[in-house]
């Protein structure tokens, strides 16, 4: 099911407002890397992010932080964030 970023708030907040939990929500502000995704297709813009989590090289490979990911066309993403690899609690 698609989610629409109709307020231009970025993919993560749009997902949260739609009640969708596929992408882990961390700081929402580009610092923690929890919301790291791989963009599979589509055009987009990336806002300010902490380079600890996405190197320039990874950015070229299509990695992004969903909280600073602004789609310019329809896009498809796969979550790869750090919270996914951690046991709850």
């Amino acid at each position: 099911m698609p989610v629409f970023d109709d307020r231009g708030e970025g993919v993560l907040r749009a997902m949260e407002r739609a009640g969708r939990a596929e992408i882990p929500v961390g700081c929402r502000n580009g610092g923690c890397g929890a919301c790291k995704v791989l963009v599979l297709n589509g055009k987009y813009r990336l806002g300010k992010i902490s380079r600890l989590h996405i190197t320039k090289f990874e950015e070229q490979e299509g990695y992004a932080l969903a909280c600073r990911l602004y789609p310019e066309t329809d896009i498809e993403v796969r979550p790869v964030g750090s919270l996914l690899h951690r046991a709850p609690g």
Partner: peptide, 11 residues
């Protein structure tokens, strides 16, 4: 209860 974000999210 703990939450994942508090436990796992850091900079």
């Amino acid at each position: 209860a703990l939450n994942d974000r508090f436990m796992g999210v850091v900079t």
